[in-house]
């Protein structure tokens, strides 16, 4: 124990570490200031821009083309500070517009289809049909209407459920990112990457490297493509095959025109 501390100080310290101190209670009552939404947006945009390779950045309209160095800092004008006491420390505070744009149109389309189905059901056979056939037709129309209404309700419930899942789940990828290619044989892919990197090193090494120690290239001169492949190998060799697979699939998405990509995917 530190000198000068009595047993009550030690008890108070233990209580503090356990989160049971009046100091912690008073601190929790201080205003829970948060960064401004514009600052959040700037940082998230920077994170997105930095992770997208230069070639793909030009194909997107939402992300700026700068990759290295990171984009210039943005310090938006701050609104007056406001009390915000709803922070529970782990709530994702994201713009409400993170839900996919197709949710509402999909729900509307389901409603339109249901309405069309009801319309056809109601119109049914012509008034000239006999009473028996008319009654039967009415029965069929009523059942079709009920079925359409049930389908419509189911579609609306599914849309609501999906909306809840979207709001509560992790944020979905940006709409401009295509699906990732799937790696079927990870081990074969890893072996191919190893050969690829060894081949690349041999091509870069000077002819007399056997007698002279080749200079180590600075990290910023190593091509991003080689660095990404090296990272994939590193993850795999460290016993993280799932992460290595993810990293490889992201590489195949980002470097789809790289000579090694079709070989990894088994394409001619």
């Amino acid at each position: 124990m530190s000198s000068g501390n009595g047993p009550q100080d030690d008890a108070a310290f233990a209580a503090f570490l356990a989160g049971e101190s009046p100091v912690s209670t008073a601190y929790d009552n201080l205003e829970r200031v948060e960064p401004a939404p514009a600052l959040d947006a700037a940082i998230l945009a920077a994170a997105k821009a930095a992770a997208i390779p230069v070639g793909r950045a030009a194909a997107t309209t939402a992300a700026p083309a700068a990759l290295n160095p990171p984009p210039a800092r943005v310090l938006p004008a701050r609104p007056p500070p406001a009390e915000d006491d709803d922070d529970d420390g782990d709530t994702a505070v994201l713009p409400a517009a993170r839900r996919p744009r197709w949710i509402i149109p999909a729900a509307l389309a389901a409603g339109v289809l249901a309405a069309v189905g009801i319309g056809f059901s109601v119109s049914g056979p012509s008034p000239a049909v006999s009473d028996g056939k008319s009654a039967l037709a009415s029965l069929f129309a009523r059942r079709a209407r009920e079925r359409s209404e049930a389908e419509k309700a189911a579609a609306e419930a599914a849309a609501r459920e999906l909306e809840v899942m979207v709001m509560e789940g992790p944020p979905l990828p940006p709409s401009f990112e295509p699906d990732r290619p799937q790696v079927t044989d990870l081990e074969a892919s890893i072996a191919l990457i190893r050969r690829e990197l060894v081949s690349a090193e041999r091509q870069e090494a000077p002819a007399d490297s056997a007698t002279a120690e080749a200079p180590v290239a600075p990290a910023d001169m190593i091509q991003p493509r080689d660095r990404r492949l090296a990272k994939i190998l590193e993850l795999y060799d460290e016993g993280n095959p799932d992460l290595a697979r993810d990293a490889l699939e992201i590489f195949l998405r980002d470097f789809s025109d790289d000579p090694v990509s079709p070989r990894i995917l088994g394409k001619p």
């Binding site: 829970r32 948060e34 960064p35 959040d40 940082i43 998230l44 994170a47 997105k48 992770a51 997208i52 922070d87 420390g89 782990d90 709530t91 994702a92 505070v93 994201l94 992790p170 944020p171 979905l172 990828p173 940006p174 990112e177 990404r228 990272k231 994939i232 993850l235 992460l243 993810d246 990293a247 992201i250 590489f251 980002d254």
Partner: peptide, 20 residues
């Protein structure tokens, strides 16, 4: 780690959790 290997969507929940 996922963000480091290029998975952009992994950054947002990380940021949301620690920004405050």
């Amino acid at each position: 780690t996922r963000y480091g290997i290029g998975d952009v969507p992994s950054f947002a929940p990380l940021y949301a959790r620690h920004k405050g």
